[in-house]
Structure formats: structure tokens, C-alpha cells
């Protein structure tokens, strides 16, 4: 079933590796709407095929994967989030934006049950968050931490294997998944390296492979939370990680929620921007609609130069 998912690997592959068969996520259902002749025609820009697919898949799944209703969070007496209402859809990358202290991280934390809610509720895949069994939810919800503080000298593949923890599969299957995810982030060559000796960017990619391993057998829509995934990466790696997130959402119907600081990256890779200021949603929508010069000035207190990129009609901010 992985045959019809052939697309170009997000990362450059090493010559020693076997031919990468694209986003070969084991256990993932092939996207029905991808006709076989399309991929064999010519090399297709991914955006294009992705958009046609997302339009078909969004009509099939109208329901939001994550529903946030009247959510308020106080830390001590200070309100950090105030009456947030969001419906987050599958097959999209939703970016949370806002200045420092706006509540982005707290929102992400409340999605993964790390903060207590003062009011309101969150439901995932149609079930209130507090009713979920943690181990069950872990098969569908994975979180990429901003910093991973693993100091023990595990090998790279051992770290990725930890993503298998919530899954109940045979060892052989598990090892195959791990190998595929390592290929996907172009780290197969470092499989036996000791994790603490890697560079910050490599560590981040190992963690990404681990998190994707965790979602490899999701029975319902996989939900991927990324907390500033690009902060440790160089420019090319930043784009590759976000491109991967984009592909996962559009080709494999993942629900990707990402906290970002770079507005241009958010415009380019996210389908929807949610802009927070002082714990409230001040703007929400497609990049071109949600991110206007006025909003940027109001939220970030910075007067931007905003032009519209003639190629893709997306805002470019300087």
C-alpha cells in the first residue's frame, strides 16, 4: 500500500542508502484520491497535488479533530489564556503565532494536558481530553518538544525506538517503522551514533523521527504538535521540517499544530494562522487574511513592510 505514495523525500539522501520510497509511513492508509497516473506523469510540485487532495479530504472529514471551547488558563492569579474557542481541522497545518508571552506555549501545553484548565474544555477526536486514556491518546497525539534534554548516551535508533512505546506491534514491524522514519528525516547514516554527540539540528530531527514513529499506527487522524520546531535548525533544515509537516498534513491528513516565530515561514507552510495576543485570539484565518500590516503592528508593536509575493499570493513581511 506504500506503492502509490511515492513522492520525493523531504531530505537529501545519502548515496549509501537504498532508494527512498518517499513518505513511507507504515500503517498509513493510502490517500484514495491520488490516481496512479498523476504521480507517474512528471515530477509534480507538491503544493499543487496537495491542494487538490486537501479539498477532497476536507469535504470527507468536516469534523474538527481538536475542539477548544471557552478555554481559560490562569497561572497563579495571572490569566494566560482567556476564553479561547478554536476548531482545528485535519489535513491542515495550523500555526500559532504571537509575541512572547502571548499564550502560544500555554495553549500547546493545555492541548497535551500539562497545564490545568481554569475554565472551558478541550476535546480531541470527538472525546473530551480528560476522558482519554493517556496510553490510547498517545497513539494519535504526539508532541515534539522544543528542547529535549536527553543526556544518557543512547544511540540514535534507540531514541527513535522509544516512539514505539505506546504501540503494540511486533519487534520486526517496529524496527521497520524506525528505519523508515530515520530515512524520512535523512538520518539513516547516523543510526548508530550516540545521541548526545549530535548537533542541535540533528537532535531535533531525531526527536522528530521519534514523534513520527509514535504516530505510525494511528487508527484515527494523527495529531502532531510542534513547539517551535525550527528554533535549533539552520535555514535549509527549517524549510525541510516545515515542508515535511506540510506534506504530512496534506498527503496524509495529519492535523498539525505548530508554534512558530517566523511569520514568513508561517505564511508559506501553514494553511491557517491563529494569532494570539495577551491570551486572546486576535486574528484567525488563511495567511493572506489573518496576517495584515495592521494586525502585525497591533500585536507585535512593529511597523512592517508587507508585500504580496506575486508567485504564490502570500504576504511577505520584512
Amino acid at each position: 500500500m506504500l506503492r502509490n505514495l511515492e513522492c520525493k523525500s523531504m531530505f537529501k539522501t545519502y548515496p549509501s542508502e537504498p532508494q527512498v520510497t518517499g513518505l513511507a509511513l507504515a500503517g498509513l492508509k493510502p490517500v484514495e484520491s491520488a490516481p496512479a497516473d498523476r504521480k507517474s506523469a512528471t515530477f509534480m510540485p507538491e503544493q499543487k497535488s496537495a491542494e487538490t487532495e486537501s479539498s477532497t479530504s476536507s469535504s470527507a472529514t468536516e469534523n474538527a479533530v481538536v475542539s477548544i471551547n471557552n478555554l481559560s488558563v490562569h497561572i497563579g492569579k495571572k490569566p494566560v489564556l482567556n476564553d479561547i474557542n478554536l476548531e482545528i481541522m485535519p489535513g491542515q497545518v495550523t500555526a500559532l503565532l504571537g509575541p512572547n508571552g502571548a499564550g502560544k506555549s500555554t495553549l500547546l501545553k493545555s492541548l497535551c494536558q500539562e497545564t490545568e484548565l481554569s475554565a472551558g474544555s478541550i476535546s480531541m477526536l470527538g472525546k473530551p481530553l480528560h476522558n482519554w486514556n493517556r496510553a490510547e491518546l498517545a497513539k494519535s497525539l504526539a508532541v515534539l518538544p522544543q528542547h529535549a534534554s536527553l543526556t544518557f548516551p543512547f544511540k540514535v535508533h534507540e531514541v527513535v525506538q522509544m516512539g514505539l512505546y505506546p504501540l503494540s506491534i511486533s519487534q520486526q514491524q517496529g524496527l521497520e517503522i524506525v528505519d523508515k522514519q530515520l530515512q524520512q528525516v535523512a538520518l539513516s547514516a547516523l543510526k548508530y551514533r550516540s545521541y548526545p554527540t549530535l548537533s542541535g539540528g540533528e537532535k531535533q530531527r531525531v526527536q522528530l523521527a521519534r514523534v513520527l514513529t509514535q504516530l505510525a499506527q494511528a487508527e484515527s487522524t494523527p495529531i502532531l504538535l510542534l513547539d517551535e520546531p525550527t528554533s535549533a535548525l539552520d535555514l535549509a533544515q527549517q524549510h525541510r521540517v516545515l515542508e515535511l509537516a506540510h506534506t504530512l498534513a496534506h498527503k496524509h491528513n495529519y492535523c498539525v499544530i505548530v508554534v512558530l516565530h517566523d511569520l514568513n515561514q508561517a505564511c508559506r507552510y501553514a494553511d491557517r494562522l491563529v494569532i494570539l495576543e495577551q491570551g486572546e485570539v486576535v486574528s484567525d484565518g488563511k495567511p493572506a487574511e489573518a496576517l495584515t500590516a495592521d494586525i502585525i503592528e497591533k500585536v507585535w508593536h512593529y511597523k512592517p513592510t508587507l508585500v504580496i509575493d506575486p508567485n504564490n499570493k502570500l504576504p511577505l513581511i520584512f
Binding site: 497535551c112 494536558q113 500539562e114 493517556r134 496510553a135 490510547e136 491518546l137 498517545a138 497513539k139 497525539l141 504526539a142 508532541v143 518538544p145 529535549a148 522509544m162 516512539g163 512505546y165 505506546p166 509514535q214
Partner: peptide
């Protein structure tokens, strides 16, 4: 936190 996200109590 990471262990919790993996579904560990």
C-alpha cells in the same frame, strides 16, 4: 513531559 506524551503514567 516527553514520557507523558508517550502515554506513560
Amino acid at each position: 513531559a516527553e514520557a507523558r506524551h508517550l502515554g506513560l503514567d
